[in-house]
Amino acid sequence: MKKLLTRLMLVISMLTILAGCGTAKESTGSETKSTSAAASDNNKTVENKHTIKDARTTLEFDKIPERIVVLQWQEAEFLLALGIQPVGFADIPNWDLWVNIEPKLAADVVDVGSRVEPSLEAIAELKPDLIIGTLSWHEGYLEQLESIAPTALFETSINGTNYTNEYDKMLDTFREFGTFFDKEAEAEAVIAKLEKTISDGQEKLKDAEFPTKEFLAAMAYSGTQAPEFRLYNNRSQTATLISKLGLTNALTEPKGDGTFDVTNVEALTAFKDVLFMHIVQDTDNVFENNLKGASVWEDLYFVQKDQMYGLGGDTWPQGGPYSAITIVNKTVESLTSAEGK
């Protein structure tokens, strides 16, 4: 019974974390909100203010915020990439488990609860001058959050936008953060590092020999009843980055308008000669714990041919520029170390 309860707790925790990878419809708006009591001062002009546009509106500040609480991981990564440490951050233990980037989160950053249900009391105690969250997760808390500090809610979804993939949207949003925080040069330096990483990866894989150039990128984890797989289509950041390395996504007909399909092991039988690129946690290795020995898994072509390439459990598929660098490096490392196996 104790083992069963432990298993159920792990599944609930995984589903909560993975909800953050989902997509959501973005709202748009042209309303502009002032975030300063001095905003009505006739001596102030728009040119004197610092503005940032989120998924709802445009926020104005008389000075760049310094005490920032961030409730979602991609936006936290934007801050870290610009050399900015938040005073508060949601879900630090799971961040440490799923996200492996440089620079690291400072040890004195205060955990403000989960991303789904942040602690309003903990946030208020930090006296922030800006709270950053996600529209699909935190809109229900907006009134309470805005009573503490100006709140900007962003969205990773590309639905309802002109973007064809979330990678391009990530880069543009990161640049907007750089402009808002007066760190344009820092943002461009990080993007240049990312582009060089991609270029270096292309060079390393250029002459590599693989059984196929087609890949299938997946995140595997325990579902409520059986292992589940998130298969990433070409709208996703993960598949976009792997494709930039010279490979071709085998998932050409996604089921919906999101960036991934959620499916089961039976659906994988539709994919034959592919390089199976997978993200799976060591603490929830469904390949070993659930699928090993099951004919539906063992009979898959890419399993029989040993065409499985691990990207690690700490490769976050919807992060910022440093998570993108991790995806590229882990892909190249996995493919080159397994070449000719």
Rank of each mutant, 00 (worst) to 15 (best):
E228W: 03
E228V: 14
F229D: 01
R230D: 08
Y232N: 02
N233G: 09
N234W: 01
R235V: 14
S236Q: 05
Q237P: 00
T238K: 01
T238V: 12
A239K: 02
A239F: 00
A239G: 07
T240V: 01
T240N: 02
L241S: 07
I242R: 06
L245G: 15
G246Y: 08
G246K: 09
L247P: 01
L247E: 04
L247S: 00
T248W: 08
T248I: 06
T248M: 09
N249V: 09
N249S: 11
A250E: 07
A250N: 10
T252W: 05
T252V: 03
T252I: 01
E253C: 08
E253K: 08
E253Y: 11
E253D: 12
P254A: 07
P254L: 11
K255W: 03
G256M: 12
D257P: 02
G258T: 02
F260Y: 05
D261A: 14
D261Y: 10
D261L: 07
V262T: 12
V262G: 03
T263A: 03
N264G: 14
V265P: 00
V265W: 00
E266G: 13
A267V: 09
A267Q: 08
L268R: 04
T269H: 10
A270I: 14
F271A: 05
K272V: 11
K272P: 08
K272E: 11
D273Y: 11
D273T: 12
D273C: 14
D273K: 08
V274I: 06
L275K: 00
F276Y: 14
M277R: 11
M277C: 15
H278G: 08
I279L: 15
V280R: 05
Q281M: 14
D282S: 15
T283D: 15
T283K: 15
N285F: 10
N285P: 09
N285M: 07
V286R: 10
F287V: 04
E288G: 12
E288W: 13
N289E: 15
N289P: 06
N290R: 11
N290M: 10
L291H: 13
K292Q: 09
G293P: 06
G293R: 05
G293V: 01
A294R: 05
A294Y: 02
S295F: 12
V296P: 01
V296Y: 06
E298F: 02
D299V: 06
D299S: 05
D299W: 04
L300R: 03
Y301C: 02
Y301H: 03
Y301Q: 05
F302K: 07
F302Y: 10
V303A: 10
V303G: 07
V303H: 08
Q304S: 15
K305H: 09
K305L: 13
Q307R: 00
Q307W: 05
M308N: 15
L311N: 01
G312Q: 03
D314R: 14
T315S: 15
P317L: 04
P317W: 01
Q318W: 02
Q318H: 04
G319N: 08
G319M: 05
